[in-house]
């Protein structure tokens, strides 16, 4: 019972943090408050009995904060004063409200909180120790039962990183500043 109350508190904190992120003027403060939301999320994972994901979320959050601060620091640091068209603002709010109303009906058909329907996972839990031998069942799902998924997701990571490289690549006169040639340069 205490776990559920703590989860409510953490979720309210996350909602407040993301509202600050959306509405604050200074971009550096926005980035830092989204970092606070991420750390609160890792705390929530810890209370939901998922220590693997809590570790991953903390470490990934640090790295994404570094990347986002790298992007926003030293360029113009203030949000844009002018707003979107007033119509688009209100349309977005109406749209979001409709989504929330329909989501409330959709949640009625989900399994109740705290009683998951574990049809596939029951097999993994029963046979995991005998068939794989790993005592961390999350790892045995990632790298044995569903290793093909992991291979595909590694490819997705590779694709996004190569897309970033293509975008960041220097052309023509800037080519000699490319980091692939830095060894010859220095």
């Amino acid at each position: 019972m205490e776990t559920i109350i703590i989860l409510h508190i953490i979720l309210v904190f996350m909602i407040i943090g993301s509202l600050i992120t959306v509405e604050i003027r200074n971009m550096l403060s926005a980035v830092i408050s989204v970092g606070a939301v991420g750390f609160a999320l890792s705390l929530a994972f810890l209370f939901l009995d998922a220590p693997d994901i809590a570790i991953t979320q903390v470490i990934v959050e640090i790295l994404s904060l570094v990347i986002l601060i790298r992007a926003t620091i030293k360029v113009d640091n203030v949000a844009i004063e002018k707003r979107e068209h007033i119509l688009s603002d209100r349309t977005a709010l109406i749209f979001v409200g409709m989504i929330l109303v329909f989501a409330w009906f959709a949640f009625q058909s989900l399994p109740t909180f705290g009683e998951p329907s574990m049809r596939v996972s029951q097999y993994y839990l029963m046979n995991g120790l005998r068939e794989v031998g790993a005592t961390n069942f999350v790892t045995s799902v990632i790298l044995d039962y569903r290793a093909y998924d992991t291979l595909g997701e590694a490819m997705v990571l590779f694709t996004s990183i190569s897309g970033a490289f293509v975008i960041l690549r220097r052309w023509k006169k800037e080519q000699d500043k490319d980091f692939l040639r830095i060894d010859r340069e220095h």
Partner: peptide, 21 residues
């Protein structure tokens, strides 16, 4: 349930890749 945890574990790291993109 270990299955959603396994899927989310990979999806967090991929989120970092798309964020960098």
């Amino acid at each position: 349930d270990p299955l959603p945890q396994a899927l989310v574990l990979t999806s967090i790291v991929i989120g970092l890749g798309t964020l960098a993109l």
